[in-house]
């Protein structure tokens, strides 16, 4: 790994002041460090944001659950408040990687990285999340721009993610057996008069499947999407699954999610 300067920021202001075109924020480091070790990314400066107190913690209000960006997966999965308000979010966190990854990895890091197979981006889309940064609030639907791309500008730091509590929800993933990343993951959330079906792992970026959302908004039953033939032309093909298999998996996982709601 090439050398860099390590900084530990005291607050968001200091973190964004230290940021430059050759820096990265360091949270759990579960992607940043392996990427740097493999030479896929190099930075002159790493700005550690874990010690910024304001960025950790979970708050539940009547309508929403707000999770600080540096909150670890283990904290989300163990939180009684999250389990009560949005149980599917708690079980999503419990299914990320392995215990050692969950002890370090953070929700903000996962979202900022926007891996096409990551779990949390689907939760943001399904649960109508708002991403709070040190500069503005961004709706999840406008946040995830493409493979590893987000609406974040250089030096902009995610501070918290605010999820809207749904009537019912479930996240079902078909994981890669080695990495636990989603080959396909589907997060279904039902709100009054509206259903979101967020899909991760299938395409280059998380998305809300309009066809299934529409069908489920009309009739919230797995029978309404049974046998749906999704367009696989934009879906990923790799050694783990073909695009056609992924298209079929999306429907299977969505049905499982609806049945589990």
């Amino acid at each position: 790994m090439k050398d860099f300067n390590y900084h530990s920021a005291k607050d968001s202001k200091e973190a964004s002041q230290l940021a430059s075109s050759s820096s990265a924020f360091l949270a759990g480091g579960m992607t940043t460090i392996p990427s740097m070790k493999l030479g896929l990314a190099t930075y002159q400066d790493l700005i550690d944001i874990k010690n910024i107190k304001k960025l950790s913690g979970i708050k539940v209000s009547g309508k929403s659950v707000t999770i600080g960006a540096a909150t670890k997966h283990v904290e989300v999965s163990n939180s009684k408040d999250v389990k009560k308000a949005i149980p599917s979010l708690s079980s999503l966190a419990e299914g990320i990687g392995d215990p050692q990854v969950r002890n370090r990895g953070t929700i903000g890091g996962s979202i900022a990285n926007n891996d096409p197979s990551a779990d949390y981006p689907s939760a943001c889309i399904a649960l109508n999340a708002t991403i709070h940064t040190n500069e503005r609030k961004i709706e999840a639907a406008k946040f995830f721009k493409g493979m590893f791309e987000t609406a974040l500008k250089k030096g902009e730091l995610i501070e918290a993610i605010e999820f809207q509590i749904p009537e019912k929800s479930s996240y079902q993933k078909h994981p890669n057996p080695a990495s636990r990343y989603a080959i396909v993951g589907v997060y279904v959330a039902k709100y009054k008069g509206d259903v979101n079906v967020a899909v991760t792992g299938a395409k280059s970026c998380v998305y809300n499947d309009k066809e299934m959302s529409k069908a489920l908004s009309g009739n919230f039953s797995s029978s309404s999407i049974n046998g749906m033939d999704l367009d696989s032309s934009e879906m990923n093909t790799d050694m783990h699954a073909s695009a056609e298999f992924r298209a079929s998996l999306v429907v299977t996982q969505a049905k499982k999610a609806v049945d589990a709601c």
Partner: peptide, 19 residues
């Protein structure tokens, strides 16, 4: 490479000493 840091297990090949 698993070790314990402040009572929790982590993978020491994916943590900076400075961190």
């Amino acid at each position: 490479c698993v070790v314990h840091v402040d009572g929790n297990s982590l993978k020491s090949c994916t943590a900076l000493a400075a961190d």
